[in-house]
Write a protein that binds this DNA or RNA. Sequence first.
DNA 1: CATGAATGAGTATTCATTCAT
DNA 2: TATGAATGAATACTCATTCAT
Lengths: 192, 192, 192, 192
Amino acid sequence: MPKSQERCQEIREETRNLIIRKSVLYFARNGFAGTKISDLSKHIGIAQGTIYIYFKSKEDLYREIFAISDKIAQNNKLTTLVKLPLPAEKKIRMMSDYVIRNLKEDEMFSAGIALFTQRILEGEADQSFYKTTEKIIRQGQKEGSVVHGNARKLSELYWGVVYLYAVKGLYTSDYAMISSDDLARLLLEDRK
Amino acid sequence: MPKSQERCQEIREETRNLIIRKSVLYFARNGFAGTKISDLSKHIGIAQGTIYIYFKSKEDLYREIFAISDKIAQNNKLTTLVKLPLPAEKKIRMMSDYVIRNLKEDEMFSAGIALFTQRILEGEADQSFYKTTEKIIRQGQKEGSVVHGNARKLSELYWGVVYLYAVKGLYTSDYAMISSDDLARLLLEDRK
Amino acid sequence: MPKSQERCQEIREETRNLIIRKSVLYFARNGFAGTKISDLSKHIGIAQGTIYIYFKSKEDLYREIFAISDKIAQNNKLTTLVKLPLPAEKKIRMMSDYVIRNLKEDEMFSAGIALFTQRILEGEADQSFYKTTEKIIRQGQKEGSVVHGNARKLSELYWGVVYLYAVKGLYTSDYAMISSDDLARLLLEDRK
Amino acid sequence: MPKSQERCQEIREETRNLIIRKSVLYFARNGFAGTKISDLSKHIGIAQGTIYIYFKSKEDLYREIFAISDKIAQNNKLTTLVKLPLPAEKKIRMMSDYVIRNLKEDEMFSAGIALFTQRILEGEADQSFYKTTEKIIRQGQKEGSVVHGNARKLSELYWGVVYLYAVKGLYTSDYAMISSDDLARLLLEDRK
DNA sequence: CATGAATGAGTATTCATTCAT
DNA sequence: TATGAATGAATACTCATTCAT
């Protein structure tokens, strides 16, 4: 019965994904210590035991969640963006559009950013994430479109603000989201 | 010979303050769920039981901590600042100087900002805190020194960034603090 | 395959009853303060945590125990007895037979009487329990078979003595139980 | 300074007695486990530490209390009573008068009886206490004034009822005390 | 696989006891 | 001596994890 074999595999995959998807949000909102398996399983809509079929422990699940948050944060268009033959200002505007749109429409994106940034704060995540943005910033500074200052610091500020609104989005749906322009303005020189 | 009434009162006051002072930092760093009374008491340098002489429960202590964070966040010079007969730009620069200096020198300030903002995010703290800054922003917009845009949103952005660096300061002592100018620039029009 | 809904309900009911049944005896013997959850759970034969699945706290369990003791004390045959068209003397003898037999054979009865009476002593249980016996006493006084005196006082004496032997039974199995006749004699005139 | 030496000794004695006196009542009402040193000391009107100047531990104090309760229960007039050249009925009436008067007027007597009986129930106190009463009962049975039956059982019943009203007295001041006659009647044949 | 009742190690809280004043 | 703040072992309670169904 190879057919049912596959189907089984599919179901497994589905449940596993369901758990991860729902957990990302839950952990992003409540943190590791603030998340009880009993609450989480209720939130997912499955039994407590089921989680342990797919993950060895709460920490194992958390680690998985982090791997996901890494992907969400890093597998965005940024890496391709930096290589395009465009002026930095354009890149920054595109990046900001992309980020704001995702913050608005995709809770998983917000959760990913939140978890990822928290880990950076705790010194556990790879800070190379900021590198790509730094490159764009330096390019822009040469082109005269980006404000002066330490590129790393500006990059951190930029993504810090993104984190800020990611967290806001996780807690309330009703809040004044920053505009793409506001976000871009953190890096760009004002035009008079 | 019994201890004198006043001396007892004094000792109580001292211990209570010690607990609060050390707890503000601990809770700001680890959150409520992430804080174990056993660890906290070790960090304070007292026995677990002592905490329960002064606070009914972990949650009671946490609430007290929040009351403190309110004071730290709100008892700053902002309220007096807004009333001074100064241009908004000057006010914003003074405010930013004050904030950055405190972020650098006073961990309690950082912890207060962190806890307070977290509570605002969770919809539990009084958002009237932003009002004072909004007034300065509106004044500045009239004077042409502050960027256009919704004053509340700008105020939230400003304090959001402060929160960002407060949290950074709680986790690592070794990081690139934003400058007072960078902070002020969030609100001020660029001058060429 | 999930457990069936009914089977789960059944298991819960069973465990809950087990806890209550064993706890009645334990609390009756040791009192609230004298009962440790760790000991109690060992005595029941379950883990400590299991108790907290079914009861919010030690006090919650204790309250439940009391509700049970009310039922044990009050759901006896007395209420039906009083309505029968029998002489009071007969009723008192039947009641005494019933009580003594239960004291001898049913530890739950003894525990119920013990807990219930303790609560009456502490002014927390409904003293209307004595009413039924009072009625029989008054009937008997009219018929000349019951000794003179305040019916309430006689009723209290009667059940006080029952309490006495209930407690004795809880502490030692080897003791001289009062006879049904001795108990009845508390209320009945001597026949020469 | 022999004078002040003595005075010191006196004060010591006074405090010690105060503790014992107040503790007897407190322990009788709440039991060993139900008595907190913090509450007890408040009830006595001294600091917690003071108790430990006079007694090595809570259990040490409890033991002392028991010694007192032994004296209260046993050092009554009963031992002299039994030797008097009187008919048993007279002895029983005197004993009952004595007991009831003390139950009414002397909380220490009630507390002593309560503690002593509780210890007998728990098999820790000397049951020889009942002996004296048994002798009187046997004398009365020969004289025809006391009801038939096992003397030990009757003695236990008699003192059980005394215990009952001792406990009632400890909990409420407002209750229907048994009369001396009622108490005596437990042992005496009815006279027509 | 999925369930949820049961477990027991871990955490919060209490309370007998100590000790500096 | 007397005090009451401080202690930490004992106790109550929680929650990640297991396992029979």
